[in-house]
Structures are given as C-alpha cells and as structure tokens.
C-alpha cells in the first residue's frame, strides 16, 4: 500500500508498479495524484460545490443517488457544475440502512453513469449513523459478484477490514469519527493497527473537521482521506478546500519523511558548548 522514498527524498510510485517519480496511488486500476476525495453534498448551492471541489484539487468526488424531482425536471443538475469527464464520480449509498437498498442504489448509479467503482456504506440508525457491518458484508458480497469495484466505509475493526479485503473490496475506509461530526481522528492507534494488515488502499472516511485532522490521518500513513462536511460546513468552503489540499500534502510528506522520535524531556537544538561565561 505505502509509497517508498528514494535517497533524494523523491517519493516513488510503487503503487503503479513503475517508478514514475510521482507520488501516486491506484485503486481498482485507476491511478490518482490527489490523495483527497471530497463529497459534493451540503453546499449552499451548486456553484459553491463546483468552486470548492476545484480548490480542493480532488480528482475523485462522491455523489449521492436520489429520486429526480419530477415537478422540476429542468432544474440544474450536479453534472452541470462538476463535470463527470473532469472528475471520477464515486457514487455512494449514503442514507441506505439495508444491504438491499444499497445494492439497488448502486445498480441505478451504474446505469446512470456507467461506473463500476462505487462507495458502499450501510448505516445504522441516527444519531450515530455508525457502519452496520452485517449489512455492509451482505451488500459487498452481492456487489462484488455483480462486477462492482467496492470501496467500503467500515467500522474501525481490524477483523472486519481484513474480511472485506479478502472478499475483494478495493479500498478499506474506516471512520475517524461519526459522519459529519467533525470530531477529528478519534482512533489513531486503531487506524494504525488496522493499516498494518490491509494491502489495498486504506482511507479515513468520516470525522475530519479541519485541516489538522486530515494531516493527522495522512501522517498515520493512510493512502488518502475522504471528507465532505469539513469543507462544505466551513464558514468559507473554498478557502477550507485549499487548506485541506495543503494539509493532505503536508501530512503525506511528513509520513514519507518519517517523524522524529518522541522523547520525554528536552534535547536542545543549539550546542551546549562554547557558551559565554
């Protein structure tokens, strides 16, 4: 999963199987430079959605599937502001509480857009919307059999993650905190431990509240981060989108650089010899 770094500090594109000198990652055969995936929901309007996504530098955007408003068939659509040719649409199953709803939703998404790459989430009831792993396993099995490439939202459960990978999910995406909570990565130790045993891309998906949260996820070694509300609900979404872009890059570089060891106590940076007396 992880990149390696050449002696000169240049990240090597190990995920792509060749040394491109670029720090890319690959999911289901598609290679990306940006390690930020953003949602397209909860913005003030579609103009703001388009502007924030452009500022984030994201190459993949999640989208929801919903009934068409039949009383206003000519209402502007997401595709008019977020070009499906410029971004990889990742249809999600947000709002699905059963495996069957999730499977139907993604089959419709595939028909609407023609993509096999999808984000599966089967949720438990509010207020936590915690991943319902039984429903998630059930839906993942049907979807994989049906030819989908499933990036899966899941609990921070190492056994569940391993099982999902073995089933054939193409990315494992545990929560850092409940959806839309903005609480940040509440489980850094568990995220790190899960990552050890996963070989497909590993993303924190949910819980990021601000730039430092995204950086922490990347410093832990995540392949990428998926977020929505942290940008959409910021006072200035476009500005926060830029902040996230930089935080992801900073966190990634810090991970590649390898942080210094923590120590209890001071270790001065200036020499203690040659002092005036």
């Amino acid at each position: 999963m992880d990149q390696v770094v050449a002696a000169d500090g240049t990240p090597q594109g190990k995920d792509t199987g060749k040394d491109t000198g670029e720090d890319t990652w690959t999911v289901a055969g598609r290679t990306f430079r940006s390690r930020l995936i953003v949602g397209t929901g909860r913005y003030k309007d579609l103009e703001e959605t388009g502007a924030a996504i452009a500022a984030s530098g994201a190459e993949i955007v999640t989208v929801a599937v919903r009934r068409v408003n039949l009383s206003d068939p000519k209402a502007p659509m997401l595709q008019d502001f977020v070009d499906p040719k410029a971004y990889t649409y990742l249809p999600n199953t947000a709002g699905c509480f059963t495996a069957n709803e999730a499977v139907r939703t993604l089959r419709l998404a595939r028909e609407a857009g023609g993509w096999n790459l999808v984000k599966l989430e089967v949720l438990g009831p509010p207020p936590l919307l915690y991943p319902d792993m039984r429903g998630t396993f059930e839906a993942a099995e049907v979807l994989i059999k049906d030819g989908f490439e499933v990036m899966v939202y899941c609990a921070d459960d190492p056994l569940a993650a391993k099982r999902l990978e073995e089933m054939g999910c193409v990315a494992i995406m545990p929560l850092g905190a409940p959806i839309g909570s903005g609480l940040g990565v509440q489980n850094p130790a568990m995220i790190s431990m899960m990552m050890e045993h996963v070989t497909v891309p590993f993303l924190v998906d949910a819980g990021v509240g601000t730039a430092s949260d995204a950086a922490i996820a990347m410093e832990l070694g995540c392949t990428a981060v998926l977020l929505n509300s942290a940008i959409a609900h910021a006072k200035h979404p476009v500005l926060m989108a830029r902040a996230m872009k930089h935080a992801i890059e900073a966190g990634r570089l810090a991970y590649l650089a390898g942080r210094m060891p923590r120590r209890m106590g001071a270790d001065p940076s200036s020499p203690l010899t040659g002092l005036i007396r």
């Binding site: 949602g39 397209t40 929901g41 909860r42 913005y43 579609l46 959605t49 999640t62 989208v63 929801a64 599937v65 919903r66 009934r67 068409v68 039949l70 659509m77 997401l78 595709q79 649409y89 249809p91 999600n92 947000a94 139907r104 939703t105 419709l108 998404a109 609407a112 857009g113 959806i179 839309g180 977020l227 929505n228 509300s229 959409a232």
Partner: peptide, 10 residues
C-alpha cells in the same frame, strides 16, 4: 418506477 439521478453527497 424509480427514476433517479446524481446529486451532491458525501
């Protein structure tokens, strides 16, 4: 019948 399209979502 269900007729759907893509909308913004996270």
């Amino acid at each position: 019948l269900e007729i759907v399209h893509f909308i913004g979502g996270g």
